[in-house]
Structure formats: C-alpha cells, structure tokens
C-alpha cells in the first residue's frame, strides 16, 4: 500500500496535466524516493491511482534505467562507462571497485550498503574516470582513492 504522503505527492503531479497519464514516470520516482525502489505491488498501486493498467505502468518503469524494479542498497553507485571514462581507465576502476565491494555490476553488497550500476554518461568527462554515489560526483578516480570515498557512505 502506498502511504498517504506518496498518494498526495502523486496527486499533486497529476494536477499539472489535463490527463493523469503524464504523471506516470514522476509517480514511479515518487515511490522510489520514499522506498528506494519500486516493487510489483507499488506498480499496481500507481496504476490504480493513474487509472492505467499495471502493464502500462510496468512498460514505463522498465524503460528507464534509473527506475529500480529491484531492491537496491542504501547507496547507489553509478559508475560511468562512457567513452571518455573508457579510454581513461574505466575497466581498471570497475574491476577494483568490484573487488573491494565483492560484487559485480548490477549487484548489491550483502550488508545492503551499496548497489553498483553502470551509467551511460555522467557528463563529467573532463574528470574521467568518474562515478556518482547518490547525488555526489567523484572524478579523477584511481583505485587508491576508492577506500576513502566509500568510507563516507555508511
């Protein structure tokens, strides 16, 4: 069940348009902001509020890589695998990060602290290779810098 607050925020979004449908992706993001991810049940609930079918909402949810349909860790690491990062050492960084966290791309650490995901471009190519943790961008990365950066996220 969606919380009262979630419903209220979704309704506010719906009010911006003549129809309710345009609020779909925003509604999913609202749910994600509150719970970290979007469960099957939440998809159904959102569909009900918007007067759409669950399939319609699901088709939107699965289209966007930043709407998470699986549970993620407390912090999401987006590692940039774009071209500038690629030629400036992305692969070494990815392997190192994977080793330190004990996970591969798309996985979450067993303590639920980090989820590691690739991103098509973070737009900080001048500081390649780069990654974003939650809303913080970290650039000019080298394996040596990783432990200190990770330690800032509990």
């Amino acid at each position: 069940m969606l919380s009262e607050e979630e419903r209220k925020e979704i309704e506010a979004e719906c009010a911006l348009y003549e129809h309710r449908r345009p609020a779909t992706s925003e509604a999913l993001k609202i749910v994600q902001r509150h719970r970290g991810w979007v469960s099957d049940e939440a998809v159904k609930d959102v569909a009900e509020i918007l007067g759409a079918s669950a399939d319609e909402v699901e088709s939107v949810a699965t289209f966007y890589t930043l709407i998470f349909r699986q549970k993620v860790g407390r912090h999401v690491i987006l590692i940039c695998d774009s071209v500038s990062c690629y030629i400036m050492g992305y692969e070494t960084l990815k392997e190192h990060l994977g080793r330190v966290l004990g996970i591969e791309l798309g996985q979450t650490t067993s303590d639920g602290r980090f989820t590691l995901l690739p991103n098509a471009c973070l737009g900080v190519c001048e500081q390649a290779p780069a990654m974003m943790i939650d809303e913080d961008v970290h650039g000019h990365l080298t394996p040596e810098k990783i432990p200190d950066i990770l330690s800032r996220y509990a």
């Binding site: 449908r21 345009p22 779909t24 992706s25 999913l28 993001k29 939107v60 890589t65 930043l66 991103n119």
Partner: peptide, 21 residues
C-alpha cells in the same frame, strides 16, 4: 526529469517521455 534513457534526447522520444509513455 528524465530517468536514464539516452534515446529520450531524440525529440519524438522526448515528447513521448513527457507524455508519460
């Protein structure tokens, strides 16, 4: 706001995205 889909920079895709599709 987008949600991580490169193709949405294409104008007709972008329109679809704003429309909630």
């Amino acid at each position: 706001l987008g949600a991580g889909a490169f193709v949405c920079g294409e104008e007709t895709a972008l329109i679809n995205s704003i429309e909630g599709n």
